[in-house]
Simulated assay, not measured.
Amino acid sequence: MRIDLEVSLDPTLGCGQAHRWHKLDDGSWEGVWRNQVVTMKQISPTSVEVIGTDDRKGITRYLGGDDDLETIISEISKRDEYVASLTDRCPGMRILRQDHWECLATYLLATNANVKRIGQMVESVCDHFGDDLGRRHGFPTPKQILDGCGCIAECRLGFRESRFITLAERVESGDIDVESFSEMNYEECVAALQDINGIGPKVADCVALFAFENMEAFPIDARISKVMEDIYGVTGSYKAVSAYGREKFGEYAGYAQEFLYHADFISRQARSRNPCHCSWQKCRRSA
């Protein structure tokens, strides 16, 4: 199935928004979406070949196809020349529309872990509790996690283990209505998310942005904190730096954050391959 959409798969799927996409040797991306093993390959800057699902509308929405990318890029570019230059260098990057439960549970595991470690934990949880799809496993429901939680230690989640089980219990019991977050504005959403044990302001911003479409969210991790200091001279508390980003970039601040994150990610990747640069650190999307 061919999807006609201006989207660049490499930065969209490969820069830490979601953690179940793997790039294959032929340049395509394999992931699990709605309990289907899906492969996507870039055909042109405005088209993608999709194998594994025939849900054209659903996969287009997942890839951020509902966003008016031209308007978004125009808005954040006129607010900042540096971000404008980044959008020119990375056309087609979009913010994914992730499953609400999967995104929430995934980012609960993301506390104090780098992208590689997050991916390992998520795959382990899926392999232990999710539906067997052949090459991969689906992301488990809260009930599937609770039914099999006797072997949760095998997933090697560390201190996140009890928080993960508690989240599954609260969602399964109805104490947490995951869909209710989508009805909240940004401030309400991040406040409610932080009532969940294990979710701080960084994780709340990520979930608000990647699951619940609060495009003004501006998550701050160690990487973005350094960028904000180096490029904009902004330092301080999480609250202060994030508020600066939201004010500076406006209603699409989350897109500006992703361009800043991607540019630094690529820069550090390049330096890591050069033995003369030894200061590179693995990226962290930690709370």
Score class of each variant (00 low, 15 high):
residue 256 A to Y: 03
residue 201 P to K: 13
residue 213 E to Q: 14
residue 224 I to E: 02
residue 252 Y to N: 10
residue 207 V to C: 05
residue 263 A to P: 03
residue 207 V to W: 02
residue 241 V to M: 14
residue 251 E to C: 14
residue 256 A to E: 01
residue 197 N to Y: 07
residue 265 F to S: 11
residue 226 K to Q: 12
residue 199 I to E: 08
residue 202 K to W: 08
residue 239 K to F: 00
residue 249 F to C: 09
residue 197 N to L: 14
residue 209 L to K: 09
residue 217 A to V: 08
residue 247 E to Q: 14
residue 235 T to F: 00
residue 215 M to H: 13
residue 210 F to E: 09
residue 263 A to S: 12
residue 209 L to A: 02
residue 224 I to T: 13
residue 228 M to Y: 11
residue 257 Q to H: 12
residue 214 N to M: 14
residue 215 M to Q: 13
residue 249 F to D: 04
residue 225 S to I: 01
residue 242 S to P: 10
residue 230 D to F: 00
residue 223 R to F: 07
residue 260 L to W: 09
residue 197 N to K: 15
residue 199 I to Y: 05
residue 218 F to P: 05
residue 204 A to V: 02
residue 258 E to R: 15
residue 253 A to K: 07
residue 239 K to Q: 15
residue 207 V to A: 06
residue 212 F to Q: 05
residue 233 G to P: 03
residue 253 A to G: 06
residue 239 K to T: 13
residue 264 D to Y: 11
residue 198 G to Y: 03
residue 206 C to I: 08
residue 212 F to T: 03
residue 208 A to N: 01
residue 267 S to M: 12
residue 221 D to H: 01
residue 227 V to T: 13
residue 248 K to S: 05
residue 207 V to R: 01
residue 209 L to H: 00
residue 259 F to K: 04
residue 237 S to G: 12
residue 214 N to A: 06
residue 224 I to H: 05
residue 230 D to K: 14
residue 197 N to E: 15
residue 243 A to F: 01
residue 229 E to V: 01
residue 207 V to E: 10
residue 268 R to H: 10
residue 226 K to A: 11
residue 235 T to G: 05
residue 232 Y to N: 07
residue 220 I to E: 01
residue 230 D to Y: 02
residue 238 Y to D: 06
residue 224 I to G: 10
residue 216 E to Y: 00
residue 251 E to T: 14
residue 244 Y to M: 12
residue 215 M to G: 02
residue 232 Y to K: 13
residue 216 E to V: 14
residue 216 E to R: 14
residue 240 A to R: 15
residue 247 E to L: 13
residue 205 D to W: 05
residue 219 P to Q: 05
residue 267 S to Q: 13
residue 216 E to D: 01
residue 197 N to G: 10
residue 217 A to H: 02
residue 198 G to F: 05
residue 228 M to F: 12
residue 239 K to G: 09
residue 268 R to Y: 00
residue 255 Y to F: 11
residue 261 Y to A: 06
residue 216 E to K: 15
residue 231 I to S: 03
residue 241 V to T: 10
residue 206 C to E: 08
residue 266 I to G: 00
residue 204 A to C: 04
residue 205 D to T: 03
residue 232 Y to E: 09
residue 200 G to C: 09
residue 238 Y to V: 05
residue 199 I to T: 06
residue 205 D to Q: 07
residue 219 P to A: 06
residue 235 T to R: 11
residue 236 G to I: 01
residue 234 V to H: 02
residue 203 V to E: 12
residue 235 T to H: 05
residue 242 S to I: 07
residue 268 R to N: 15
residue 249 F to R: 02
residue 226 K to L: 09
residue 228 M to A: 08
residue 260 L to Q: 03
residue 241 V to C: 10
residue 244 Y to W: 15
residue 266 I to S: 07
residue 204 A to S: 12
residue 224 I to Y: 05
residue 245 G to E: 06
residue 198 G to P: 09
